[in-house]
């Protein structure tokens, strides 16, 4: 049996209906577990005090903001190459989730930046890149909303996602070049995980897992909604034509 069989809408509806309660349950456990652990059972940072605990929201949200766009790129490519409708609808379903994740990362970043840097907003490369990413999400969602024919919309947003990805990465480097910035990279980023003490690290991993599962649950729900909406639209069109 091929993996592409899950791209069949009926099969997807069956599988997702079975998987959704489990994913949702696990989301609740890991998200609440990770956040409670992080907020109440870790020591304060010696420099930043308890403000550091915002990383349990900020870091997972920021990771998801980027990864959701990457997922949209993959599903858009699958749609453009193999024409699986579920794939296009999953990209459509994921975009608003990714946009909200970007917004959460921006807002928590501002809240964290205020006591640390003394300002709500700094034109720091990372913050600026996320703002640009937010604009890309806005444009992508707006294009989906503007086009009536679902296949046309899927094709055009897919092309936009492809071109947008290249320019999003390009913007990231351009912004880096433009302003070196004062964002603290090391203690937050995963690729330098040894810089974060284990006491912070484990709850962070749990809440990141929670955010991933939350995203998965939301995308499953929203894709199911999109498929149902699509069926409704097909029925209505057929009715009109008959």
């Amino acid at each position: 049996m091929s993996i592409w069989e899950y791209a069949n809408p009926k099969k997807f509806m069956q599988t997702s209906a079975w998987a959704l309660p489990w994913v949702a349950g696990l989301t609740l456990v890991t998200l609440i577990g990770g956040l409670v652990w992080g907020f109440f059972f870790t020591p304060d940072d010696y420099k930043q005090g308890s403000t550091v605990k915002i990383i349990y929201i900020h870091v997972p949200a920021a990771m998801m903001a980027i990864n959701v766009w990457a997922m949209m790129l993959v599903t858009s490519l699958i749609w453009l190459i193999r024409r699986h409708h579920v794939s296009a609808l999953a990209a459509k379903a994921a975009a608003p989730v990714g946009m909200v994740m970007t917004l959460i990362a921006l807002i928590t970043g501002a809240i964290w930046g205020q006591p640390m840097w003394g300002t709500w907003w700094e034109w720091d490369p990372r913050l600026t890149s996320f703002l640009i990413l937010f604009l890309f999400y806005l444009g992508y969602i707006a294009l989906w909303g503007a086009i009536d024919n679902p296949d046309t919309a899927a094709d055009l947003t897919g092309v936009l996602c492809l071109v947008g990805s290249v320019f999003a990465i390009l913007s990231r480097y351009a912004v880096n070049f433009w302003n070196q910035g004062l964002h603290q990279g090391a203690s937050l980023s995963l690729d330098k995980e040894e810089n974060v003490a284990d006491v912070f690290w484990y709850p962070l991993v749990v809440s990141i897992t929670g955010f991933v599962l939350l995203f998965l649950a939301l995308v499953l729900i929203r894709t199911r909604t999109e498929i149902r909406a699509r069926r409704l639209q097909a029925l209505e069109t057929r009715e009109r034509m008959a």
Binding site: F136, G139, A142, A146, I147, L160, F167, L170, S171, W178
Partner: peptide, 29 residues
């Protein structure tokens, strides 16, 4: 992208301006 749309003007700006970021940054710099 927006050629088939009745009122594509505003959407067009929203789609194009983020793509202009790298050119603007390097040009002005």
């Amino acid at each position: 992208l927006t050629v088939g749309l009745k009122r594509g003007g505003l959407l067009l700006s929203l789609l194009v301006l983020p793509l202009y970021v790298p050119t603007l940054i390097f040009g002005a710099e």
